[in-house]
Amino acid sequence: MDCVERTRGGAVCATATDCRRRGLRDVLDSCGEPLAEQTRSRTRWLKRKSGLLRQVIDNFYAELHLACSFWRGFIDVLNRGGGDVDALCKAIRKYVRSALFQGPPARIPAGVTMGRATSRKELARHFRRRRYFPDLLSANLAIDEVMRVPVEESRTKWGAYELGSHVMWSTFDPAGGRPFAIANLTSRLLRGRLGLPGRRSRYPVLTLEYELPRWQPAYLPTVAEAYAGNTWLVFFRTSSEEEVDSGFSLTQPHDDLALKHAGMPEVVHAPITGAALSYSPAEID
């Protein structure tokens, strides 16, 4: 398969950063009818399998901020898989994990506090999975302790612990304030505005606030980050051109909140450690 630009008479994109970013549709238009038709047929087949997969495929088609090299690999993965949906999903997941952080670079005000919202259970399981703690009890007690101590001590305690796997999704206040300093904020509202799992969960949201290290770039999220995890995000939409211009994307709130509340700014970056914490972790009920 050839480069999109070359088929249009331009130079071959040597690297992802050189590439004139195109969508899947453009790439399919340029790659010849048999392969394009096969790919379209595969995506139609996948879309029929479930509501989530329909949304996933729609998002892949709507994504306009990835290099054609990404799409070449994606088309290859899509057509190489057999009739096993699960195996194909795993292959897609594996592929996108190898192509993270290729979206447009984010523009974040210097020194702004970034925020990650998760749950205590998820963080404890993450710590255990990363082998920072021997069991969930230890992880939970450590979280309890860090919530009580001054942030300087939190940084020391978790200085070597990565606070996420593969990708960290982060929000921030473009005006420079703390990301979760929102009046009357409840866990349910925060989950809803961020489009987090557990729409009806009553458990508190655990917030991690940190400053992104200067050497750590952030990007607008693309389908690659959205579908890299074991759990494919339900509330994800691709970034628009306006969002690219503004330097950050917006979350997709839960349906019941979408009319009342705007999405919150979001970017993605590689996992950072607890050494970057700006405030001690806290829980929002």
Binding site: L52, P197, T231, V234
Partner: peptide, 13 residues
Amino acid sequence: SGHLPSAAEDVEP
């Protein structure tokens, strides 16, 4: 291995 039913959402394997 992550081969959850296709309608999977919100949960680790």
